[in-house]
Structures are given as C-alpha cells and as structure tokens.
C-alpha cells in the first residue's frame, strides 16, 4: 500500500513539469502585449514599459521565463500578478472558497444522486424511476448559466429567500444555492449511473446467493447491491471534484463568489503567466490526488482489489 502510494506520487512529478511547461507556453503564445494593454488606449511611457517588462521577466526568452518561474516555485515564490500582489497570497484567498463550494456541490450530488438513483434502480421501470430519469434528462439539457440565473432570480430576487450573491468569507448556508447549481449536472449523471448499476447488480449471482442464503432484503440491497454498485459512481465523483473546481467559473460569476474561477479568468484576460500557471498547477494536483483517493477507495468497496 505504501509503495503503491509512493509510486503514484512520484508519477505526479513529470505530470507537474509537463503541465506547467505546456500552460506557460500557452499563456506566452496568447496574442498581444500584456504590458501595453495595461496602459489601455493611452500612450505608454517607454521608460515605464521597459521597467515593467524587466520586473515581470517579460524581456527574457520564453524558456528563461519558465525556468525563473520554476525556480521561484521551489522557494515558494509564485511570482507577482500585474497588480503587484504575490500570486501565492491570491491562491490562499481563492482556493479555500472554491474548495468549500466544490465540496458542497460534491456532497449534494453524491447524497441526492446516490439516494435517488438507488431507489430508482430498485424499482426499475416504475413510476418513480421513469419520473426521475426524465427529470435528470431535463437537468442535463439545461446549460448551467440558465440554471444559475433562474435559481438566483427566483430564490434571490423574487422570493428573497437568500441573498442573490455570496461575497467574501462565505458561510455554508450561503454556498448552498451556488453549490446546488454547480452540482446539478453531475447530480443527474450520478443518479443515472447509480440507477443502472443498482439495477444490474440486483440480478447478479452474488445477490441471488445472498437472498437464497436467507438474508433480509434490507441487508441484501444495502451491503450486497449498493456497495458493489458504487465503484463506477466513486470513479465519477473523484474525477468530478477536479472538474467542479476548475469548472466553477460560470457559477462563481453568477453568484459573485471570489474563487478560483474568477482569479483564473482575470489572469488569462491579462496574460499573467505566473498566476495562470500557478492556479492550473494546483488544479492539476487536486485532480491527481482525487484520482489517487478514488483508486484507494476501490479497495474499500471491493475486497478483491488489493494494492501492493
């Protein structure tokens, strides 16, 4: 087990370098001069432009810029954005908010997705099953911004149940609505995955055996059916955590959540290489770690799987 984890962690090293190099190159290739853009349409003073280029290493060739950035990372110096603020400070502000939001979304989609999917799977073809399947299809069909604006308008503006926007230092309750919107699409997927998986497991040999042994139905469906059906669902949820964090851009915009999406979007617009690469690198690491956790969870769900 320890060896396995160690090996997986080592594998992240090349991924880290590859991802940072690739993203740095992409930002570098963005059209336009970010320093000139700082001055807008007004004349840029040559002295100021030269000074700023030097300050952000933009006068160096690409590979030198990249190596300087990597060198900084090893001393925990992620560079500065054009506003003069250390990138690491901005990461420290934005990530906790987005992690909170993503976890809430994940919890909502996991709890409701699995519960509804489980019930639908048990009564395949029934009224509940058909209704839930239809509704989940509707959710999948609606773009997230439509869902977000509608929810914001109804709950926030029209009925006044919650504040339409979130703002800084959000509490759990404040993030409930954005979390539900963010998790809605995955909720539908989780529901359908669970439902199919459960329906399939119901006719599996080990389930029939368990029933034949005389186990009560509650024990059969929870331990023998549900636990076995969860493997594809857990895989999906693990991969989804990364997607939720990186994909929170639209939801964060609608509900004015000062998270990673906003940070990344503004950094891309301003061609701030160090900020973009730092944010994406952390997202890549989160994704890799989430996948590792998923793989380890397989062993918990299915005793036949062992890691050596």
């Amino acid at each position: 087990m320890g060896w396995y984890i160690g090996r997986r962690l080592l594998q992240m090293v090349p991924v880290f370098f590859g991802a940072t190099l690739l993203i740095y190159a992409l930002v570098f290739l963005l059209p336009g001069d970010p320093i000139l853009a700082l001055f807008g349409e007004r004349p840029a003073s040559p002295a100021a432009v030269a000074e700023l280029r030097e300050r952000y290493n933009l006068d160096e060739p690409f590979i030198v810029q990249y190596l300087l950035f990597i060198k900084g990372i090893f001393t925990l110096d992620f560079g500065e954005s054009f506003s003069g603020r250390p990138v690491i400070e901005q990461l420290a502000e934005a990530f906790p908010v987005t992690i909170k939001l993503a976890l809430i979304a994940l919890a909502i989609e996991a709890v409701f997705g699995i519960a509804f999917g489980f019930l639908a799977g048990l009564r395949r073809g029934g009224l509940f099953d058909s209704t839930v399947l239809f509704l989940s299809l509707v959710v999948i069909g609606i773009p997230v911004f439509v869902l977000g604006f509608t929810a914001q308008y109804l709950f926030g503006v029209k009925w006044g149940v919650v504040d339409p926007t979130v703002g800084g230092d959000p509490t759990f309750a404040e993030l409930l609505l954005p979390g539900a919107v963010l998790g809605a699409l995955s909720f539908a997927y989780v529901l359908r995955l669970t439902r199919n998986s459960v329906a399939e497991a119901l006719s599996a040999d080990h389930v029939r055996t368990a029933t034949a042994k005389g186990l009560g139905r509650p024990r059969v469906v929870t331990v023998h059916v549900l636990r076995n059906s969860l493997i594809p669902v857990v895989t999906f949820l693990g991969a989804d955590l990364g997607a939720l964090m990186g994909g929170a851009l639209v939801t964060e915009g609608i509900f004015n959540v000062p998270g990673v999406g906003r940070l990344l979007y503004q950094a891309v617009i301003r061609s701030e290489g160090p900020t973009v690469v730092s944010v994406v690198t952390v997202l890549v690491l989160v994704y890799l770690l989430a996948n590792l956790v998923v793989d380890l969870l397989y062993a918990v769900l299915d005793p036949r799987i062992r890691y050596v």
């Binding site: 504040d163 926007t165 915009g253 609608i254 004015n256 000062p258």
Partner: peptide, 18 residues
C-alpha cells in the same frame, strides 16, 4: 464598495436591496 465580477450579479443585488 462590493466588488463584482459581473454586472448581472450586481443588478440582482440591487433588485433585492443588497
């Protein structure tokens, strides 16, 4: 001054009195 990423969010806040 509350900082907004979009004016849509700000407008929703204006309508709800925030």
């Amino acid at each position: 001054f509350v900082f907004y990423e979009t004016y849509d969010a700000a407008y929703a806040d204006l309508q709800s009195g925030n």
